[in-house]
Computed example of a mutant assay.
Amino acid sequence: MYSIGKFSIMLNLNRKTLRFYDEIDLFKPAYVDETNQYRYYEESQIEAIREIIRLKNIGISLEQIKKIRNKMNNASLATVYQERLNEIEVALKQLTKQKELIISEQRQATGERVDENNWVVDKGDFIERGNVYYRDVNCEMEQLNSFLSAFYENAGGKTLHGGHLLKMSLADDTKDICEIFAYIGDHEKDENVRIQEKERCIKVTCNQMSQKGNGYKSLFDYAEKNSLRILNTYEKYNMNDGRMNLEIICSIA
């Protein structure tokens, strides 16, 4: 089973969204721990929540999704897509983006899904020992840009090496990101400078941001299969030949 933290980050969903879907009986967790009310989800639920996300992304209301989920099949999905496409044609200028999403989903409904399990998991000391400049943030992913701007502004004239890393949170009762940090020179001192210890890690690289959720899933599944305990989770964004890629790093024990 996956905790709500792991499940939300695999699906690129806010934890508040999953809790809300539970409250309105749209998408329930497989198990709720009676002692602490933590939610847990099974792998078999992934496609169901993805279908909800797809329908929501094309403009279907949550109330409508609840009504059609009970009779979900390829024929009913095709009808839903076509009806929404007709609505979009009425207000084409405002709804162009949703129209493209529907057309994309219609093509996928009759085609083959891409195999999402062919991931290379690397092992190594990807979190190195050294001085880092850090800021505690406790923010959601959609708030990241403003926190990053403040991070670099507060860093002032410090020399940051290798770009920043995001320390993610998988706990049930926290927000997505708990810390931003970057390595600096050994001579630089500040109240927001600490020593980062070396951590043994597993890592995958996503060449497209749309691969992020599957990248997390591959690491979580690899750790479980090999009896590894995940300690911390990090994201590092890099520019490669003018394109952004993402390294997802999990320290392990």
Score class of each variant (00 low, 15 high):
Q45H: 06
Q45P: 06
Q45W: 08
I46Y: 02
E47C: 08
E47Y: 09
E47I: 14
I49L: 04
R50M: 08
R50A: 00
R50T: 03
R50P: 01
I52F: 05
I52P: 11
I52L: 07
I52A: 03
I52C: 04
I53C: 10
I53Y: 03
R54M: 12
R54D: 11
R54Q: 12
L55A: 10
L55Y: 03
L55T: 04
N57H: 05
I58Y: 02
I60T: 05
I60N: 02
I60G: 04
S61R: 09
L62V: 06
E63Q: 10
E63G: 05
Q64V: 11
Q64D: 15
Q64W: 01
I65P: 09
K67S: 14
K67P: 00
K67Y: 10
I68Q: 08
I68R: 02
R69H: 07
R69Q: 13
K71V: 14
K71W: 03
M72S: 14
M72A: 14
M72P: 00
M72N: 11
N73I: 03
N73Y: 05
S76W: 04
S76P: 01
L77G: 02
L77Y: 06
L77P: 08
V80S: 13
Y81N: 07
Q82V: 04
Q82M: 10
Q82R: 13
E83C: 09
E83Q: 15
E83K: 07
R84A: 00
L85D: 08
L85K: 11
L85E: 08
N86S: 08
N86P: 00
E87R: 12
E87C: 11
I88K: 00
E89V: 07
E89G: 09
E89L: 09
V90S: 03
A91S: 14
L92A: 14
L92Q: 12
L92D: 02
K93M: 08
L95D: 08
L95A: 06
L95W: 09
T96V: 07
T96C: 06
K97L: 10
K97Y: 13
K97D: 06
K97P: 00
Q98W: 01
K99E: 14
K99M: 02
E100G: 07
E100D: 11
E100R: 11
L101V: 05
L101W: 08
I102F: 04
I102V: 15
I103P: 01
I103L: 15
E105Y: 15
E105H: 10
E105M: 09
Q106G: 01
Q106L: 14
Q106S: 04
Q108A: 14
Q108T: 09
Q108K: 15
Q108Y: 10
A109R: 12
A109Q: 12
T110G: 04
T110Y: 10
G111C: 12
G111D: 15
G111K: 14
G111Y: 06
E112D: 06
E112F: 13
E112I: 15
R113A: 15
R113Y: 09
V114M: 14
V114L: 15
D115E: 15
D115H: 02
D115Y: 03
E116C: 13
N118F: 13
W119E: 01
W119G: 08
W119I: 08
V120G: 00
V120S: 09
V121T: 09
D122S: 12
K123C: 01
D125N: 13
D125I: 05
I127M: 04
E128L: 09
E128A: 10
G130T: 03
G130L: 02
G130C: 01
N131V: 00
N131W: 01
N131I: 01
N131C: 02
Y133S: 00
Y134H: 05
Y134P: 02
Y134L: 11
Y134V: 04
